[in-house]
């Protein structure tokens, strides 16, 4: 018989206060944004912003492990990106006052590459775009926040006769520019800027 012993993930006799304000990139409050605290897969506290973008709620405290505050992480259909703050284990840290949290509007890029040429060519391409999320790590030792906030990332692939087409969607940030760089048969690389001005943007490339 296998006996499993699991210590509680929640600290006994402890509560935290989590509060802040959620704004868009122009500084306007965003209402009804979900804000959660978790450790591992365990939900510790949750709330939604009010009409002024404010949230304030009581959270349980993790016994060990990180406490993660996620803003807008639960709503995939939201027009806004997400913001996460990861706190390493900090004894007696019970007041999480996040002040202003800025969410930027998401932009979906529907990206399509089609081979129309009959030549046996190879396309070496990459797409550089802005990530629609912000992740901040609150470092216990240095007492500084580090992380990545709306940073650029890239995706690359090589298309050839065996795998000539590509179609996918990329989640990025509105009013930013995606850089599409391609190279056909090792010719000089070309770069095309794709302005992401709408919630959903389409771009099709043929070679």
């Amino acid at each position: 018989m296998l006996l499993l012993s699991c210590d509680p993930e929640v600290k006994e006799n402890e509560r935290s206060l989590v509060k802040g304000t959620v704004l868009d990139f122009e500084g306007n409050p965003i209402a009804i944004v979900p804000v959660t605290t978790t450790t591992g897969k365990l939900l510790l506290g949750e709330d939604f912003t009010d009409r002024n973008g404010n949230f304030e709620f009581t959270s349980l405290e993790p016994k060990s492990g990180d406490l993660i505050i996620d803003v807008n992480a639960e709503d995939d259909n939201s027009p806004f990106g997400t913001y996460s703050i990861i706190y390493s284990q900090k004894p007696l840290q019970q007041n999480y006052n996040l002040s202003n949290i800025t969410l930027r509007k998401k932009a979906i890029l529907v990206f399509d590459i089609k081979k129309t040429s009959t030549e046996n060519s190879t396309l070496d391409w990459s797409l550089e775009y802005t990530e629609p999320f912000c992740e901040v790590y609150d470092d216990e030792e240095t007492n500084q926040s580090i992380g990545r906030c709306y940073e650029n990332t890239s995706f690359s692939e090589i298309l050839d006769a065996a795998n000539p087409d590509f179609e996918s969607e990329f989640a990025s940030v509105q009013n930013t520019t995606a850089q599409f760089t391609y190279q056909i048969n090792k010719e000089a690389p070309q770069t095309i800027s794709i302005e992401l001005t709408e919630a959903t943007n389409f771009y099709e490339f043929e070679y």
Binding site: N13, E14, R15, S16, L17, T58, L92, Q94, N95
Partner: peptide, 14 residues
């Protein structure tokens, strides 16, 4: 009389 530790804002409530 609860033994719950809280930040100042929640002290009287708990």
């Amino acid at each position: 009389f609860m033994n719950i530790h809280t930040p100042d804002g929640l002290d009287s409530f708990f």
